[in-house]
C-alpha cells in the first residue's frame, strides 16, 4: 500500500516535470516562430558608414583589437593623385617630401609613390594603419575624400557588441547582412570598388 502511494507520487512529479518540459519546448518554439518574420539566414557584420564618420579618432582606441580593425581604405577611383595631398602632408608642411616630420600619419602607414608629373599615388599599408582617421580628415578637408575609414573584415572579430559602435559619436556603425559589409561615400557607382577576392 505504502509503496503504491510512493509510486503514485513519483508519477505525479514526473507528469508535472514533463508538462513543464513540454511548455518550455513550446515556448522556445513559439519564440523562434515569433522571430521568424525578422529572421535572416545570413550572418550580421559591423559596417562603418563613411558618410557619417567624423574622424573623432575613437576607432583607433576603442576597438578590442590592437591595432584597431578599422582601417583607412583608399578608394583609388576617387583619388585626384594630388602632389600636395591633404591626407599625406601636415597642413603647415613646406617641402613636399616624405620626411617623417612632414607626414600626417602617426605611423607612416601611407606610401607615396610617384606616378608621373604631377601625379602621386598613395597606398595605405594595412599593417601599419591604426585607424586614427587623421589622413581621412585631411583628405576630406583638402582633397576628394578618397581616404575613408572602414571596418576591415578580415581583421574584425565581429563582436556581438562592437566596442567602437558603443562610443561612436556619429552613430556611424550598424549591423548589416554579410553580403554588403562596406559602405563608402562620395560615389554612387559601386563598381568602382571590387571585392578583394576578385583580383586574385
Amino acid at each position: 500500500m505504502e509503496q503504491h502511494q510512493e509510486g503514485n507520487k513519483i508519477d505525479r512529479r514526473k507528469f508535472l516535470n514533463s508538462g513543464i518540459r513540454a511548455t518550455i519546448v513550446l515556448g522556445i518554439g513559439g519564440l523562434g516562430f515569433s522571430l521568424l518574420k525578422n529572421l535572416s539566414a545570413e550572418e550580421l557584420v559591423w559596417q562603418l558608414d563613411a558618410s557619417k564618420c567624423i574622424q573623432c579618432g575613437r576607432c583607433a582606441t576603442s576597438c578590442i583589437m590592437t591595432p584597431s580593425a578599422v582601417k583607412c581604405i583608399h578608394v583609388y577611383a576617387m583619388c585626384g593623385y594630388c602632389d600636395l595631398c591633404g591626407g599625406f602632408f601636415r597642413p603647415e608642411t613646406k617641402q613636399l617630401t616624405t620626411a617623417a616630420e612632414n607626414q600626417l600619419c602617426p605611423t607612416s602607414a601611407i606610401k607615396r609613390k610617384f606616378v608621373e608629373e604631377p601625379f602621386f599615388e598613395y597606398e595605405i599599408i594595412e599593417n601599419l594603419c591604426i585607424g586614427c582617421g587623421k589622413c581621412v580628415k585631411g583628405c576630406e578637408a583638402f582633397g576628394n575624400g578618397s581616404l575613408q575609414l572602414q571596418v576591415s573584415h578580415n581583421l574584425c572579430k565581429n563582436c556581438n557588441q562592437c566596442a567602437i559602435a558603443r562610443v561612436c559619436p556619429a552613430d556611424a556603425f550598424s549591423r548589416v547582412p554579410v553580403k554588403s559589409p562596406y559602405l563608402f561615400k562620395g560615389f554612387g557607382n559601386k563598381k568602382l570598388v571590387k571585392p578583394a577576392e576578385d583580383d586574385e
Binding site: 583608399h74 583609388y76 599615388e121 578580415n154 570598388v193 571585392p195 576578385d198
Partner: peptide, 11 residues
C-alpha cells in the same frame, strides 16, 4: 599607369 583596385577584404 593602372589605378589599383580598392581592397575590401571579405569577411
Amino acid at each position: 599607369h593602372q589605378q589599383p583596385p580598392t581592397l575590401t577584404p571579405a569577411p
